[in-house]
Design a protein around this nucleic acid. Sequence first.
DNA 1: CATGAATGAGCCTTCATTCAT
DNA 2: AATGAATGAAGGCTCATTCAT
Lengths: 193, 193, 193, 193
Amino acid sequence: MGRIVDEQRHTERREAILSEAYRQFAVSGYDRTSTASICRGAGISSGTFFHYFPTKLDALVGVLTSGLQQTRQALSLIETDGGGLRAVLAYAEGLRAEMADPHFGGFVHAVSGVELLPEVATVLDDESTLIRDFLTRNLSEAAAGGEIRGDVSPTHLALWTQWLLDGAAQHATGPDQAAGEVIDAVHALLRPP
Amino acid sequence: MGRIVDEQRHTERREAILSEAYRQFAVSGYDRTSTASICRGAGISSGTFFHYFPTKLDALVGVLTSGLQQTRQALSLIETDGGGLRAVLAYAEGLRAEMADPHFGGFVHAVSGVELLPEVATVLDDESTLIRDFLTRNLSEAAAGGEIRGDVSPTHLALWTQWLLDGAAQHATGPDQAAGEVIDAVHALLRPP
Amino acid sequence: MGRIVDEQRHTERREAILSEAYRQFAVSGYDRTSTASICRGAGISSGTFFHYFPTKLDALVGVLTSGLQQTRQALSLIETDGGGLRAVLAYAEGLRAEMADPHFGGFVHAVSGVELLPEVATVLDDESTLIRDFLTRNLSEAAAGGEIRGDVSPTHLALWTQWLLDGAAQHATGPDQAAGEVIDAVHALLRPP
Amino acid sequence: MGRIVDEQRHTERREAILSEAYRQFAVSGYDRTSTASICRGAGISSGTFFHYFPTKLDALVGVLTSGLQQTRQALSLIETDGGGLRAVLAYAEGLRAEMADPHFGGFVHAVSGVELLPEVATVLDDESTLIRDFLTRNLSEAAAGGEIRGDVSPTHLALWTQWLLDGAAQHATGPDQAAGEVIDAVHALLRPP
DNA sequence: CATGAATGAGCCTTCATTCAT
DNA sequence: AATGAATGAAGGCTCATTCAT
């Protein structure tokens, strides 16, 4: 049982660090965030930090991986309620909510300069692929159901949609911005001729 | 005459540094690029670097400003040939060409973590505004001419278009990517109902 | 207990650095002494230096503050044995001993160019005031006791004495210099008409 | 004749640089004054500066030497009017006037850290010796005339006087300070028993 | 497990000095 | 003689990471 408690404690602490790291990366960017500052924010010593993450970069990978998992779960959950255009819009709606997080806008940029490092690139690619597959799958279904235009391949539409959403995310800088706009824009992009 | 020669030499050298800085920022990001490395790449001494740019950050601002000016010229030139949808597509086409530059994709991200600094934010805002105004202006004209949908305000369409293009730029990673796709996507977004 | 040991170790190390800094500032002056050189002399790494003193200037302030405290203690001790002329001469005698330190003469000058910085000026003023007050107080007493001239205000005499002692300190350059002379000079300055 | 004009121009310029250097050394100290800043202040290029002074240190030596010559002249002039205590007091009076120069106090300290370099030490020693000889000579005369105490050797009295004056100079920080005090202090030091 | 003192490579920047024009 | 662009050694300081306790 001690084992269980320990593991739980371990997980909790790990997540506390991750959460603080996310916040600071979002505010200041990866390179300009020091491990010391994360430690201070998380109320731990540098020794502890490096006990949980052998490297500062590993903490970033942790944050990104955690995000990937959340995205995976979110997409899963969405498809539970059925697919098609509804699923795509539900995803866009979720993104819109995320963008309301004051840290989100920052974090989108936080990865800069490190995104080329293989470990980071891998997670980023995985997430990108996950989303594109989700979009392709559901846009296919939507096209089949006549909900959206059928004269352009779902593959293309998925890519375009991803562009649109990523671009919007990049512009996000505050809670009140771009409220329902994103949804409208997606509609505009996909509507049948 | 010596004066003219000097000024020319000065400008040339300045631009050589700027160009090398652009390349390295794009590859490694601002923070992970050292001034020493730029000097090495440009074949100059550190002293010379700081003779031209009082600060590493000033070099970045220089790069961004230079980009802003190029954009301004490009947009000017485009509007010389008339406005409307044609102008917007010409701009997208230009972006596509830029995206073929192997460094472009990287540079889009290079600014992260520094983009909050006032000097940088100013240039970035200026460029963003320049483009949005260009888009708004020409989408207005296009709407008036019935080239694009008229049931959504040009302001919104401009923002959406900018999202789309920024998102595409963000995904750019090499010369062969996303060839003419961008144009198609813009068409899809703007076409009348 | 570990706490106590740690604190002791911390203090010891801090003082070792301070002592090395004092030596080098005295020999080469503040600006011409590099932190690297202090580190070398103290057998520590640059990281350690900045762990103890956030700034090179803070090390100087540390040295000065430490000197101020020593002076405070010395003056305290002297007045324990009674005041008046005897105390003033005891102080002069102490200065004479200090001047025998081969580094003392140098250090008097080491502060130049930095003495205008507020942090440094504060400590220097404090020390100057401490001494002038000590002198004024005891010269008052001495005048009251008829040990020294009573026709000039103790305030003036204190200032003059401080001039004399500072001037002598400034000239100090080695152990064998100006042996008991200082005492004689003070006597000459203060003797009754 | 062209030769003469050139030489005059050369001297003028040299003195302009020296004067600017003096001012800046006094304000910021030797090490914290950059040659570039002197050039700016003197309205010349760095090339010109190094044409007149092969080294920054040479400029300092120039300033000091110039000061030495002025002192020599001043002392000469004073002795023209006769020697003895009057001459000593005239010198003290001159010092008092100099101390009114807002830059003087600073410059006294400016030399720090460099005063150990042979070139500088030489000039400084020369000046110190010049003054001590002057004092010794005239205090001898004064003692012979019964103007001052005769029970202490003029050599000692000269040293003490120099201490007093140097100490006062060190404390000088502004035009209104220590007005006639110095003279009084010298009197106090030298008066017969 | 946790701590935080210690490390040292590396960074940005300054500045005296040189030299081609 | 005068200029100022170019140089590069040196300096102060930061920060990810290690390790003894």
